[in-house]
Design a protein around this nucleic acid. Sequence first.
DNA 1: TTATCTGCAAACCGTTTGCATATAT
DNA 2: ATATATGCAAACGGTTTGCAGATAA
Lengths: 148, 148
Amino acid sequence: MAETHDATAGDSWRERLRASGHRLTAQRELVLQAVDTLGHATPDEVLAEVRKSTSAVSLSTVYRTLDLLEELGLVRHAHLHDRAPTYHSTTSPPHAHTVCRRCGRVRELSQPRTAELVATFREGEGFEVDVAHLTVFGTCLDCEAPAG
Amino acid sequence: MAETHDATAGDSWRERLRASGHRLTAQRELVLQAVDTLGHATPDEVLAEVRKSTSAVSLSTVYRTLDLLEELGLVRHAHLHDRAPTYHSTTSPPHAHTVCRRCGRVRELSQPRTAELVATFREGEGFEVDVAHLTVFGTCLDCEAPAG
DNA sequence: TTATCTGCAAACCGTTTGCATATAT
DNA sequence: ATATATGCAAACGGTTTGCAGATAA
Protein backbone atom coordinates (compact mmCIF):
# COMPACT_ATOMS: atom_id res chain seq x y z
CA MET A 1 0.00 0.00 0.00
CA ALA A 2 1.79 3.05 -1.27
CA GLU A 3 -0.02 5.23 1.24
CA THR A 4 2.23 4.16 4.06
CA HIS A 5 5.65 5.72 4.33
CA ASP A 6 8.44 3.77 5.94
CA ALA A 7 9.46 5.17 9.30
CA THR A 8 12.93 3.68 9.02
CA ALA A 9 13.59 5.59 5.82
CA GLY A 10 13.25 8.94 7.56
CA ASP A 11 14.98 10.87 4.82
CA SER A 12 13.25 9.81 1.66
CA TRP A 13 10.41 12.26 2.08
CA ARG A 14 12.81 15.16 1.70
CA GLU A 15 13.76 13.81 -1.68
CA ARG A 16 10.10 13.34 -2.56
CA LEU A 17 9.51 16.95 -1.62
CA ARG A 18 12.21 18.24 -3.90
CA ALA A 19 11.36 15.79 -6.65
CA SER A 20 7.88 17.27 -6.77
CA GLY A 21 9.24 20.77 -7.15
CA HIS A 22 8.84 21.84 -3.54
CA ARG A 23 11.37 23.22 -1.11
CA LEU A 24 12.58 21.83 2.14
CA THR A 25 11.92 24.38 4.83
CA ALA A 26 12.30 24.42 8.59
CA GLN A 27 8.53 24.85 8.94
CA ARG A 28 7.80 21.71 6.97
CA GLU A 29 10.17 19.68 9.09
CA LEU A 30 8.67 21.07 12.27
CA VAL A 31 5.07 20.42 11.25
CA LEU A 32 5.74 16.86 10.17
CA GLN A 33 7.58 16.16 13.38
CA ALA A 34 4.77 17.66 15.47
CA VAL A 35 2.20 15.43 13.77
CA ASP A 36 4.38 12.39 14.44
CA THR A 37 4.75 13.39 18.08
CA LEU A 38 1.12 14.21 18.75
CA GLY A 39 -0.61 11.20 17.26
CA HIS A 40 -3.95 12.78 16.34
CA ALA A 41 -3.82 16.54 16.25
CA THR A 42 -5.80 19.46 14.89
CA PRO A 43 -4.02 22.26 13.00
CA ASP A 44 -4.25 24.36 16.15
CA GLU A 45 -2.62 21.69 18.25
CA VAL A 46 0.10 21.23 15.68
CA LEU A 47 0.83 24.95 15.85
CA ALA A 48 1.00 24.83 19.63
CA GLU A 49 3.38 21.89 19.53
CA VAL A 50 5.66 23.54 17.01
CA ARG A 51 5.73 26.72 19.05
CA LYS A 52 7.14 24.88 22.02
CA SER A 53 10.47 24.96 20.23
CA THR A 54 10.15 28.02 17.99
CA SER A 55 7.70 30.76 17.12
CA ALA A 56 8.77 30.82 13.49
CA VAL A 57 5.56 29.27 12.19
CA SER A 58 2.21 30.83 11.44
CA LEU A 59 -1.19 29.18 11.44
CA SER A 60 -1.62 29.62 7.72
CA THR A 61 1.66 27.85 7.12
CA VAL A 62 0.44 24.98 9.27
CA TYR A 63 -2.64 24.67 7.08
CA ARG A 64 -0.68 24.92 3.86
CA THR A 65 1.91 22.46 5.10
CA LEU A 66 -0.60 19.88 6.28
CA ASP A 67 -2.24 20.00 2.85
CA LEU A 68 1.10 19.49 1.17
CA LEU A 69 2.14 16.65 3.47
CA GLU A 70 -1.17 14.99 2.81
CA GLU A 71 -0.67 15.28 -0.95
CA LEU A 72 2.72 13.65 -0.53
CA GLY A 73 1.13 10.86 1.51
CA LEU A 74 3.04 11.68 4.68
CA VAL A 75 -0.02 12.48 6.79
CA ARG A 76 -3.72 11.70 6.68
CA HIS A 77 -6.67 13.36 8.30
CA ALA A 78 -9.88 12.09 9.84
CA HIS A 79 -12.84 13.78 11.52
CA LEU A 80 -12.83 12.51 15.07
CA HIS A 81 -14.99 15.25 16.55
CA ASP A 82 -17.24 18.15 15.59
CA ARG A 83 -14.46 20.67 15.64
CA ALA A 84 -11.42 20.57 13.41
CA PRO A 85 -10.06 17.54 11.54
CA THR A 86 -7.18 15.66 13.12
CA TYR A 87 -3.99 14.76 11.32
CA HIS A 88 -1.79 11.77 11.95
CA SER A 89 1.27 10.36 10.26
CA THR A 90 1.06 7.52 7.78
CA THR A 91 3.69 5.40 9.49
CA SER A 92 0.99 2.89 10.40
CA PRO A 93 -1.31 1.30 7.83
CA PRO A 94 -4.69 2.94 7.08
CA HIS A 95 -7.36 2.13 9.62
CA ALA A 96 -10.83 3.36 10.54
CA HIS A 97 -11.66 4.88 13.92
CA THR A 98 -14.51 4.38 16.34
CA VAL A 99 -15.49 7.26 18.60
CA CYS A 100 -17.71 6.81 21.64
CA ARG A 101 -20.10 9.69 22.19
CA ARG A 102 -20.42 8.93 25.87
CA CYS A 103 -16.88 8.40 27.08
CA GLY A 104 -15.16 10.08 24.16
CA ARG A 105 -12.80 7.17 23.64
CA VAL A 106 -11.19 6.88 20.22
CA ARG A 107 -10.15 3.44 19.07
CA GLU A 108 -8.46 2.28 15.90
CA LEU A 109 -10.29 -0.49 14.15
CA SER A 110 -8.21 -3.65 14.13
CA GLN A 111 -6.42 -4.64 10.97
CA PRO A 112 -8.52 -7.78 10.33
CA ARG A 113 -11.81 -6.00 10.98
CA THR A 114 -10.73 -3.15 8.72
CA ALA A 115 -9.94 -5.64 5.97
CA GLU A 116 -13.27 -7.36 6.47
CA LEU A 117 -15.15 -4.09 6.20
CA VAL A 118 -13.32 -3.10 3.04
CA ALA A 119 -13.99 -6.51 1.51
CA THR A 120 -17.69 -6.37 2.38
CA PHE A 121 -18.17 -3.03 0.66
CA ARG A 122 -16.03 -3.97 -2.30
CA GLU A 123 -17.80 -7.25 -2.98
CA GLY A 124 -21.27 -6.43 -1.73
CA GLU A 125 -21.63 -2.84 -2.88
CA GLY A 126 -19.03 -2.39 -5.59
CA PHE A 127 -17.57 0.37 -3.48
CA GLU A 128 -13.95 0.97 -2.50
CA VAL A 129 -13.94 2.44 1.00
CA ASP A 130 -11.47 5.16 1.95
CA VAL A 131 -10.92 3.47 5.25
CA ALA A 132 -8.37 5.94 6.60
CA HIS A 133 -10.97 8.66 6.47
CA LEU A 134 -13.72 6.61 8.04
CA THR A 135 -14.92 7.50 11.52
CA VAL A 136 -17.67 5.43 13.08
CA PHE A 137 -19.59 7.24 15.81
CA GLY A 138 -21.58 5.39 18.42
CA THR A 139 -21.24 4.18 21.99
CA CYS A 140 -19.16 1.56 23.74
CA LEU A 141 -21.52 -1.09 25.08
CA ASP A 142 -19.64 -1.21 28.36
CA CYS A 143 -18.69 2.41 28.59
CA GLU A 144 -18.54 3.91 32.03
CA ALA A 145 -19.29 7.53 31.25
CA PRO A 146 -22.51 9.23 32.31
CA ALA A 147 -25.24 8.06 29.96
CA GLY A 148 -26.30 10.71 27.45
CA MET B 1 -37.12 1.64 16.54
CA ALA B 2 -38.44 4.71 18.27
CA GLU B 3 -36.28 6.92 16.08
CA THR B 4 -38.60 6.55 13.13
CA HIS B 5 -41.73 8.62 13.06
CA ASP B 6 -44.71 7.37 11.15
CA ALA B 7 -45.46 9.42 8.08
CA THR B 8 -49.10 8.43 8.19
CA ALA B 9 -49.44 9.88 11.66
CA GLY B 10 -48.65 13.35 10.44
CA ASP B 11 -50.09 15.06 13.49
CA SER B 12 -48.51 13.33 16.45
CA TRP B 13 -45.36 15.38 16.29
CA ARG B 14 -47.33 18.50 17.11
CA GLU B 15 -48.45 16.84 20.29
CA ARG B 16 -44.91 15.74 21.04
CA LEU B 17 -43.80 19.33 20.58
CA ARG B 18 -46.30 20.67 23.06
CA ALA B 19 -45.83 17.77 25.45
CA SER B 20 -42.17 18.72 25.74
CA GLY B 21 -43.06 22.29 26.62
CA HIS B 22 -42.46 23.76 23.18
CA ARG B 23 -44.75 25.79 21.00
CA LEU B 24 -46.14 25.07 17.60
CA THR B 25 -45.13 27.85 15.26
CA ALA B 26 -45.49 28.46 11.57
CA GLN B 27 -41.70 28.39 11.20
CA ARG B 28 -41.43 24.95 12.73
CA GLU B 29 -44.04 23.57 10.40
CA LEU B 30 -42.37 25.14 7.41
CA VAL B 31 -38.91 23.86 8.28
CA LEU B 32 -40.09 20.30 8.87
CA GLN B 33 -42.00 20.30 5.64
CA ALA B 34 -39.02 21.65 3.71
CA VAL B 35 -36.80 18.87 5.08
CA ASP B 36 -39.38 16.30 4.05
CA THR B 37 -39.61 17.80 0.58
CA LEU B 38 -35.89 18.18 -0.04
CA GLY B 39 -34.62 14.78 1.00
CA HIS B 40 -31.09 15.71 2.07
CA ALA B 41 -30.67 19.42 2.65
CA THR B 42 -28.30 21.81 4.35
CA PRO B 43 -29.65 24.57 6.60
CA ASP B 44 -29.12 27.00 3.76
CA GLU B 45 -31.10 24.90 1.35
CA VAL B 46 -33.87 24.51 3.90
CA LEU B 47 -34.04 28.27 4.22
CA ALA B 48 -34.23 28.69 0.45
CA GLU B 49 -37.02 26.13 0.21
CA VAL B 50 -39.03 27.76 2.98
CA ARG B 51 -38.63 31.15 1.36
CA LYS B 52 -40.28 29.93 -1.80
CA SER B 53 -43.56 30.25 0.06
CA THR B 54 -42.81 32.91 2.64
CA SER B 55 -39.98 35.13 3.82
CA ALA B 56 -41.05 34.88 7.42
CA VAL B 57 -38.11 32.72 8.50
CA SER B 58 -34.57 33.65 9.40
CA LEU B 59 -31.46 31.55 9.12
CA SER B 60 -30.97 31.43 12.86
CA THR B 61 -34.46 30.07 13.27
CA VAL B 62 -33.68 27.37 10.74
CA TYR B 63 -30.67 26.33 12.82
CA ARG B 64 -32.58 26.42 16.08
CA THR B 65 -35.49 24.55 14.57
CA LEU B 66 -33.37 21.83 13.02
CA ASP B 67 -31.73 21.27 16.41
CA LEU B 68 -35.11 21.02 18.06
CA LEU B 69 -36.56 18.70 15.43
CA GLU B 70 -33.52 16.50 15.80
CA GLU B 71 -33.97 16.36 19.58
CA LEU B 72 -37.55 15.32 19.00
CA GLY B 73 -36.41 12.61 16.60
CA LEU B 74 -38.18 14.13 13.59
CA VAL B 75 -35.04 14.74 11.56
CA ARG B 76 -31.48 13.42 11.52
CA HIS B 77 -28.32 14.82 10.07
CA ALA B 78 -25.32 13.32 8.32
CA HIS B 79 -22.15 14.78 6.82
CA LEU B 80 -22.32 14.00 3.15
CA HIS B 81 -19.80 16.58 2.01
CA ASP B 82 -17.16 19.00 3.29
CA ARG B 83 -19.58 21.86 3.61
CA ALA B 84 -22.60 21.89 5.86
CA PRO B 85 -24.37 18.87 7.35
CA THR B 86 -27.46 17.65 5.57
CA TYR B 87 -30.77 16.99 7.30
CA HIS B 88 -33.37 14.47 6.33
CA SER B 89 -36.60 13.31 7.87
CA THR B 90 -36.84 10.16 9.95
CA THR B 91 -39.74 8.73 8.02
CA SER B 92 -37.46 5.98 6.71
CA PRO B 93 -35.42 3.73 9.02
CA PRO B 94 -31.85 4.74 9.92
CA HIS B 95 -29.30 3.89 7.27
CA ALA B 96 -25.69 4.73 6.48
CA HIS B 97 -24.61 6.51 3.31
CA THR B 98 -21.84 5.92 0.83
CA VAL B 99 -20.43 8.90 -1.05
CA CYS B 100 -18.27 8.51 -4.15
CA ARG B 101 -15.49 11.06 -4.34
CA ARG B 102 -15.24 10.73 -8.10
CA CYS B 103 -18.82 10.89 -9.33
CA GLY B 104 -20.31 12.41 -6.20
CA ARG B 105 -23.06 9.87 -6.04
CA VAL B 106 -24.73 9.38 -2.66
CA ARG B 107 -26.28 5.99 -1.95
CA GLU B 108 -28.15 4.70 1.04
CA LEU B 109 -26.76 1.49 2.41
CA SER B 110 -29.26 -1.32 2.05
CA GLN B 111 -31.22 -2.43 5.07
CA PRO B 112 -29.61 -5.91 5.29
CA ARG B 113 -26.09 -4.56 4.84
CA THR B 114 -26.76 -1.89 7.46
CA ALA B 115 -27.94 -4.57 9.88
CA GLU B 116 -24.89 -6.68 9.13
CA LEU B 117 -22.57 -3.78 9.79
CA VAL B 118 -24.26 -2.93 13.07
CA ALA B 119 -24.11 -6.58 14.17
CA THR B 120 -20.43 -6.86 13.28
CA PHE B 121 -19.46 -3.89 15.40
CA ARG B 122 -21.75 -4.88 18.24
CA GLU B 123 -20.49 -8.43 18.48
CA GLY B 124 -16.93 -7.98 17.32
CA GLU B 125 -16.06 -4.65 18.89
CA GLY B 126 -18.57 -4.17 21.68
CA PHE B 127 -19.60 -0.98 19.95
CA GLU B 128 -23.08 0.27 19.08
CA VAL B 129 -22.84 2.15 15.79
CA ASP B 130 -24.87 5.30 15.21
CA VAL B 131 -25.63 4.15 11.74
CA ALA B 132 -27.77 7.11 10.73
CA HIS B 133 -24.80 9.39 11.19
CA LEU B 134 -22.37 7.16 9.33
CA THR B 135 -21.02 8.30 6.00
CA VAL B 136 -18.59 6.07 4.16
CA PHE B 137 -16.41 7.92 1.67
CA GLY B 138 -14.68 6.14 -1.17
CA THR B 139 -15.17 5.44 -4.85
CA CYS B 140 -17.59 3.40 -6.91
CA LEU B 141 -15.65 0.63 -8.61
CA ASP B 142 -17.50 1.21 -11.86
CA CYS B 143 -17.92 4.92 -11.59
CA GLU B 144 -17.89 6.86 -14.82
CA ALA B 145 -16.55 10.18 -13.60
CA PRO B 146 -13.08 11.46 -14.50
CA ALA B 147 -10.57 9.57 -12.35
CA GLY B 148 -9.09 11.66 -9.54
C1' DT C 1 -50.41 37.59 30.82
C1' DT C 2 -46.12 35.57 30.32
C1' DA C 3 -42.89 32.21 28.98
C1' DT C 4 -41.32 30.89 24.65
C1' DC C 5 -39.92 32.09 20.08
C1' DT C 6 -38.25 35.02 16.52
C1' DG C 7 -35.34 38.30 13.68
C1' DC C 8 -31.51 40.93 13.56
C1' DA C 9 -26.84 41.96 13.90
C1' DA C 10 -22.75 40.96 15.93
C1' DA C 11 -19.57 37.53 17.37
C1' DC C 12 -17.52 33.18 16.66
C1' DC C 13 -14.52 29.37 14.87
C1' DG C 14 -11.96 27.03 11.57
C1' DT C 15 -10.09 27.93 7.22
C1' DT C 16 -8.51 30.38 2.95
C1' DT C 17 -6.52 34.13 0.44
C1' DG C 18 -3.83 38.39 -1.36
C1' DC C 19 0.09 40.48 -1.02
C1' DA C 20 4.64 42.10 0.33
C1' DT C 21 8.73 40.05 2.24
C1' DA C 22 11.98 36.33 3.00
C1' DT C 23 14.44 32.31 1.54
C1' DA C 24 15.80 27.65 -0.68
C1' DT C 25 17.55 26.48 -4.73
C1' DA D 1 18.60 35.26 -9.64
C1' DT D 2 14.26 33.74 -9.21
C1' DA D 3 10.60 30.77 -8.21
C1' DT D 4 8.69 29.10 -4.11
C1' DA D 5 7.34 29.75 0.74
C1' DT D 6 6.13 32.54 4.49
C1' DG D 7 3.71 35.88 7.78
C1' DC D 8 0.27 38.92 8.36
C1' DA D 9 -4.16 40.62 8.27
C1' DA D 10 -8.29 40.58 6.07
C1' DA D 11 -12.06 37.83 4.20
C1' DC D 12 -14.62 33.82 4.22
C1' DG D 13 -18.52 30.22 5.15
C1' DG D 14 -21.05 28.00 8.47
C1' DT D 15 -22.83 28.49 13.01
C1' DT D 16 -24.05 30.54 17.55
C1' DT D 17 -25.52 34.15 20.58
C1' DG D 18 -27.58 38.41 23.04
C1' DC D 19 -31.18 41.03 23.04
C1' DA D 20 -35.48 43.59 22.06
C1' DG D 21 -39.78 42.84 20.03
C1' DA D 22 -43.43 39.38 18.62
C1' DT D 23 -46.51 35.60 19.60
C1' DA D 24 -48.55 30.89 21.22
C1' DA D 25 -50.44 29.34 25.17
